[in-house]
């Protein structure tokens, strides 16, 4: 393949479209980031650089609402990501290291179910479910729903990683009289660390970012950051919303970047 002349492979204009694509993807985020530092109270006019709206997020009239929402968002995301990563790791071990079995396809279908069902349908179904068993909507219902739909996001990087690790490492350990449990915890899990970390981070971001399902199952009075932001935006985009959005988007980008570099590192060699 390397011998194929580049002239034959490449097409004129494709580079330009790629750059246009990146421009469309990044321009809105960059613009909002810039305007979040605007000193003006209007979102239209530029009046110079200021951290005013960042201060407003922490001390302004809406700060209490944002603090509670941020607390809810982060505690739910940490717990949901931990639980779904644990569940996904166990499932991946069965799927990748469990031989062939009848229910393998069904299991895989079940794990990817939250990816196939449109999110709004999952949201409606979850709301109806909690209603029908008489469960009061609130913090706990959000947490449970998040654990469920984060599982496939944690599962995919973890199972991909496990498929990339030859089982000769565990076989060698067991030849040296390690039990299966020891081979699992002392050999496979350390090798799996990059996959598990990137699965955890993706689940964490997916939970932190979710709006639709949370909006349905949150109940009255309980807000996460996305639902609080949505409530504010409905009355118009305000500068403090741009500041909080910039913080949240920077956080996501940092997390994904860490996940990218962690999953690239290969400790099996």
């Amino acid at each position: 393949m390397a011998t194929v002349n580049n002239d034959i492979k490449t097409y004129k204009g494709f580079r330009a479209i790629t750059l246009l694509c990146l421009l469309v993807l990044y321009a809105p985020l960059v613009i909002v980031t810039i305007y979040s530092f605007n000193a003006s109270a209007s979102i239209t006019n530029w009046e110079g650089l200021s951290f005013r709206w960042y201060a407003d997020v922490f001390t302004g009239p809406e700060s209490d609402k944002f603090k509670v929402a941020a607390f809810n968002s982060f505690t739910i995301a940490i717990m949901a990501a931990t639980a779904s990563t644990t569940i996904a790791t166990l499932a991946a071990t069965a799927m990748v290291r469990g031989g062939k079995f009848k229910l393998r396809t069904v299991s895989f279908g079940l794990i990817s179910l939250p990816l196939m069902v449109p999110e709004i349908v999952t949201a409606v179904a979850t709301l109806i479910f909690f209603n029908s068993i008489g469960f009061t909507r609130g913090y706990l219902t959000i947490l449970v729903a998040h654990i469920a739909f984060c599982i496939p996001f944690a599962y995919l990087p973890i199972s991909a990683r496990m498929q990339g690790i030859e089982d000769s490492f565990e076989q060698a350990a067991m030849d040296l009289y390690a039990t299966k449990r020891q081979a699992f915890t002392k050999v496979l899990m350390p090798l799996m660390a990059p996959g598990i970390i990137s699965g955890f981070l993706l689940a964490f971001i997916v939970s932190l970012d979710d709006f639709i399902i949370t909006n349905f199952v949150k109940g009255a009075g309980v807000e996460t950051l996305p639902t609080a932001i949505f409530g504010s935006v409905k009355q118009g985009i305000k500068p403090n919303i741009m500041a909080i959005s910039t913080m949240l988007l920077s956080f996501s980008i940092v997390m994904v970047t860490i996940s990218y570099f962690v999953s690239k590192s290969d400790n099996t060699k």
Binding site: T86, I87, A88, L90, A91, T93, A94, M95, V96, R97, G98, G99, K100, F101, L103, S107, L110, I111, L113, P114, V117, T122, A125, T126, F129, V144, A145, I147, A148, F149, I151, Y155, Q163, D167, E170, Q171, K180, A183, F184
Partner: peptide, 26 residues
């Protein structure tokens, strides 16, 4: 690429995901 190292524990390993996704999605 699948191996069968943890064949015996398979059902126990799958149980949590079956339970959570079965009860809260399916």
């Amino acid at each position: 690429a699948t191996t069968d190292t943890y064949k015996e524990a398979r059902n126990w390993l799958l149980l949590p995901s079956w339970a959570v996704l079965g009860i809260f999605v399916l």
